[in-house]
């Protein structure tokens, strides 16, 4: 196993994709000369040239639309949108074109587009750069939505996404880029279909994805000190959701907490909670609980930002409250 940062993992995936297939190209704001807002494409301009590493104007609708066109024309574009907040400018292209054209053309057109974007808060970049809207994208049929949380997934999901005939949206939690992790052995490409149990346990299922996986694992470690054996499920793929893995976990533990950095109302956590209710109601020993962000635009000051986001402590307390009294 190799130790590597999440940023390096993303970069390794991009590089491998660019090397493997000449139809692959990277496009987005600052991906070329600047080397990527998060330095994921540092040095690529020299290595692959301006044809394949293209800086774009600050116009998300235009370059996402161009990516759709390129994919229709037979290329394999990787479009980088700086943050999910800005992707809203491209929402018309994404929802009305990328997600619908296969359907509207009776299967004649496919759009093998990969869009990467940063998501999430925690770096004091205030309300216009900090939101977690991947749950919104997961609402849209016709696209795949993934949230790599580990370095293995950060590298491998991109490679698999490029093989997909339909659009894949990769949400990279901005907080993770500088995090180090062990790159798992095995083929770099990973599946885009399964949720994974990151930590087995029998008392409560902590269900999460993306950047909150690490907070959740930290909470699970502390719960273990209290004698509560928490299972941590990393959803990995929000659409199509692997609900079977979630239900199997809940059927064992009888309790579930869903951790999601989005706002609670209409969050992806709400969807997971509803699916658990539909699929495992008679196995539940307590109501499904959620830990989400406070319903405010993510604040700028450090203490307020911390207070607005799901914390290890909040996961801990919520899980404890669900567990039998003998466990508290």
């Amino acid at each position: 196993m190799t130790k590597i940062t999440y940023r390096e993992a993303v970069r390794a995936g991009l590089r491998e994709a660019l090397q493997r297939d000449s139809k692959v190209f990277l496009m987005g704001e600052d991906v070329g000369k600047y080397g990527g807002t998060y330095a994921c494409s540092n040095g690529f301009l020299d290595e692959f040239g301006p044809e394949r590493i293209r800086d774009t104007p600050l116009s998300e609708s235009t370059f996402v639309g161009a990516g759709i066109g390129a994919a229709l024309g037979g290329l394999r574009p990787i479009v980088e949108v700086m943050t999910v907040n800005f992707s809203l400018l491209a929402l018309d292209q994404i929802l009305n074109n990328a997600a619908t054209l296969r359907h509207m053309s009776g299967g004649q057109f496919s759009i093998p587009l990969v869009v990467r974007m940063a998501t999430g808060a925690g770096r004091q970049v205030a309300a216009q750069h900090s939101h977690s809207l991947e749950g919104w994208y997961a609402h849209i049929p016709g696209i795949t939505v993934v949230t790599p949380a580990t370095v293995t997934d950060a590298r491998g999901m991109l490679l698999t996404a490029l093989k997909n005939p339909d659009p894949v949206f990769i949400f990279e939690h901005a907080y993770l880029y500088s995090m180090e992790g062990e790159l798992e052995d095995g083929p770099p490409a990973v599946d885009l279909s399964r949720a994974v149990v990151r930590r087995p346990g029998k008392d409560v299922s902590l269900i999460t994805f993306g950047g909150n996986l690490w907070k959740t694992l930290a909470a699970a470690t502390r719960l273990a000190q209290d004698g509560i054996d928490a299972e941590v499920v990393d959803l990995r793929v929000l659409r199509p959701l692997d609900i079977d893995t979630v239900l199997a976990s809940v059927r064992t533990t009888h309790r579930a907490v869903v951790i999601d950095e989005a706002w609670r109302t209409g969050s992806f956590a709400a969807e997971v909670s509803a699916r658990i209710m539909e699929g495992a109601f008679y196995d539940l020993d307590a109501p499904v609980a959620r830990v989400c962000s406070e319903e405010v635009p993510i604040p700028y000051p450090k203490h307020l930002e911390d207070a607005a986001l799901p914390s290890v402590e909040a996961v801990l307390q919520t899980a404890r409250d669900l567990c039998p009294r003998s466990k508290k």
Partner: peptide, 18 residues
Amino acid sequence: EAARRAAVTTPVHRVEVA
């Protein structure tokens, strides 16, 4: 109670409970 204790040790995160 749990939420109250949590509030002492961490930033003002409030555990919302139905």
